[in-house]
Amino acid sequence: MKSSAQNRIRSISYAKYGYYFILPFFIVYLIFQLVPLINTFRLSVYGNGNLAQDYVGLKNFAVLLFGGANRTESALHRDVFNDLFNTLILWFGNFIPQLGLSLLLAVWFTDINLKIKGKTFFKVVMYLPNIVTAASVAALFLMLFSKTKYGPINSYLIDHGFIDESSPIDFVRAKWQSRGVIMFAQTWMWFGNTMIMLMSAIMGISKSLFEAADIDGANSRQVFTKITLPLLRPMVIYTLVTSMIGGLQMWDLPYLYKEGTAWNKNTETIAVFIYNKFHIIPQNYGYSAAASVILFVITSILGCVCFAMNVDKDDKKKKALAKEQKKLAKLQSKSSFGGF
């Protein structure tokens, strides 16, 4: 028996409150993210500004992708490709060691046979760099790897006789040294995060699989290649995609890790290009927006490729099998009907 109050409440439709509650999110999203995204696409077909007479069509893209008639335009074209290349190099250089290291650590931490003491301590320590401000990390590494003999790293190398006092290593401007430092800093910041993500994925794998492998006498390498890795694939792909989206946007470190105000062309990423074209005179919104759109397209394509790779072959087979069975069942039911 329901009370009258309950009945009254049942009869009121509360659907409108749902709209009220989600409205702020969508209004703010519209103004601060959706309109800006569309605006970026719009700006990419204009020159520096957005007046009707500034409309240039696809010229910005043509200049950035294929170069142009005059010197400045071909310089821009060279810069964009240089920066895209740097972005990829820096991302590869940090993602591969990062994934290798975090995979190894995650497997160790989740191994039931090994009794590692202080797991939480190690996890806490290894995650620490991830929460430190990226700008401060850049500042710190710039000071540690200072190119003069007064830099801590250089002074250490000199004191221990690895290099001569008169020729300290130029970690800030030299091509591979500066890239190396940024890759290291990036790995240092992110491997703890990746490790924890992978650990939770491994712990999601059913324990009975590992036990069964143990009973069958599989060694740890077999367990890793035959059980952990295949079942971990979705998580690895997820990490790959998120890291890639993050890596393509890499800005704080490459932007700050430089000598005073002198730009280092060896570590300039595409995000730095976008920022500089927008802020540094002679600024040009058009090129900046066009580069953003190119970045957007690259990100989307790579993301789609990764997710397409993620569709498991076994899964496909299973689906095909299920379809076949359904067909059979249908046929059977039809024939049984016919018999009836």
């Binding site: 749902g18 993210q33 995204l37 605006n39 970026t40 990100t299």
Partner: peptide
């Protein structure tokens, strides 16, 4: 709340979760 656009709204939120900031910053 049970309302018509609940599912589309959620799908939209999922879809835009990964749009990076730098891409929209110029327009922003």
């Amino acid at each position: 709340y049970d309302f018509k656009l609940s599912t589309p709204a959620y799908t939209f939120i999922l879809a835009v979760m990964m749009v990076p900031v730098q891409v929209t910053s110029v327009g922003f």
